[in-house]
């Protein structure tokens, strides 16, 4: 951990912020991934296409990164399939029931000083940290 590893973190965060600003300025929408994804169905001629376009943008971003930077981003998984499946279902249900995820509540909501988003972010961050603590230090996986 050194000061230089914080520059990409800050820069990436600013890019995320620029994206959130762009979607609000032009389309008047919150850049919340779980909300955008969850709203794809049922199809609605006025409301579905921009959602799909946004999601396609997220999916093709690595190609642009590769062109600009010349390498493929590193990703490492340390979790087995059954847990990935369980975690996926929990993330899916949780974000719909709680109306948001890291982007919708954590970035856009807090930026609007929404109390609901501040509470949601504190809850999912602390639950996630407790889960990691339990898995790594209590259960010892």
């Amino acid at each position: 951990m050194d000061i230089f590893s914080l520059i990409p973190a800050l820069g990436g965060g600013i890019l995320i912020g620029i994206a959130a600003i762009g979607l609000m300025l032009f389309n008047g929408r919150i850049a919340g991934i779980s909300g955008i994804l969850g709203g794809v169905f049922p199809f609605n001629s006025n409301d579905t296409l921009w959602r799909i376009a946004f999601l396609v943008g997220l999916v093709i971003a690595p190609f642009f990164y590769r062109v600009l930077v010349g390498q493929i981003p590193e990703i490492t998984f340390s979790v087995s399939w059954p847990f990935l499946a369980l975690g996926g279902v929990l993330v899916g249900i949780g974000t719909q029931l709680g109306s948001g995820c890291t982007s919708g509540h954590g970035v856009c909501g807090i930026s609007r000083f929404s109390i609901r988003s501040i509470v949601a972010t504190l809850i999912f961050m602390s639950t996630a940290a407790l889960t990691v603590f339990f898995v790594r230090h209590v259960w010892g996986a």
Partner: peptide
């Protein structure tokens, strides 16, 4: 909802985006 999402995020290290 936020508790369930936090559990899933903590288990996998993945959120939707």
């Amino acid at each position: 909802g936020s508790v369930l999402f936090g559990l899933g995020w903590g288990i996998t290290g993945l959120c939707p985006g």
